[in-house]
């Protein structure tokens, strides 16, 4: 009897989830992360009082506008407010990010990832303590012991222009460019890495004199 009840509740919840998926494909406000498609890998519970939905078996989030797709082992979200996930892999135009935790503020279109964070995209591999991705500006900011392996660098902070792939190392940095390992002055500095396609290879042109356009692009984050 109890099993039959649980089965019918689950069926009801699944039916609601399918209804939710159908509704999430329509972006009601035109903002990134405002229209999410959420697919649960298993159970899905809803706190009817707070509106908090939990996917304890993990699942997948997809934002049709930004193309951001989140795979996580646990997902918790409040419709129109935020999404939190743990043990996540996020893919999008910025590449692929793995992190211990993720939070998407739907209202501000801000994606924040923390813990064992790694970014991989064409010509760029970054590890950091935290990532803040503004889906509106399409700027990603890595903080806390940022290190890159393709190309090899380290910096206090790294800013990534998702649209162009250009990178700005900020603060004290080290950049290994072929024969050289460039180091910032003692007081810190900035190094612009401009993405270049040389034949099949993706590479970066480095310069300490940051272009005004890039500074303008990152103005809100410097």
């Amino acid at each position: 009897m109890l099993l039959r009840f649980l089965a019918s509740v689950t069926a009801l919840l699944l039916a609601w989830g399918v209804a939710q998926e159908a509704e999430g494909t329509q972006p009601p406000e035109g903002r990134p992360f405002a229209a999410l498609t959420i697919l649960s890998n298993g159970r899905q519970t809803i706190d009817l009082v707070t509106g908090l939905t939990t996917l304890p078996d993990g699942g997948r989030l997809m934002d049709a506008q930004t193309g951001v797709e989140v795979l996580a082992q646990v997902i918790r979200y409040v419709e129109g407010e935020y999404i939190e996930a743990t043990a996540v892999t996020v893919t999008g135009v910025f590449g692929e990010v793995t992190a211990e935790a993720l939070r998407i503020d739907v209202k501000t279109s801000l994606l924040t990832a923390t813990g064992e964070l790694r970014l991989a995209r064409d010509g760029l591999r970054v590890s950091a303590t935290s990532l803040r991705y503004d889906a509106v500006d399409q700027v990603a900011v890595f903080d806390g012991g940022v290190a890159g392996t393709e190309p090899t660098f380290s910096a206090d902070r790294v800013l990534l222009d998702i649209l162009t792939g250009d990178v700005l190392l900020d603060g004290r940095y080290e950049y290994a460019g072929g024969l050289f390992t460039m180091r910032s002055p003692e007081v810190g500095g900035r190094l612009q890495l401009t993405l270049q396609q040389v034949g099949e290879a993706v590479t970066y042109a480095a310069t300490t004199e940051v272009s005004p356009a890039l500074l303008e692009r990152f103005k809100a984050y410097l």
Binding site: M182, R183, S184, P185, A205, A206, T207, E209
Partner: peptide
């Protein structure tokens, strides 16, 4: 404080204010 240094082993050391790589 404002200048940096880079070394090419067994060849030279460069002290500079700015640099630009041209891959």
């Amino acid at each position: 404080p404002d200048t940096s240094q880079v070394t090419i082993p067994d060849y030279l050391a460069v002290y500079y204010l700015h640099f630009t790589s041209l891959p």
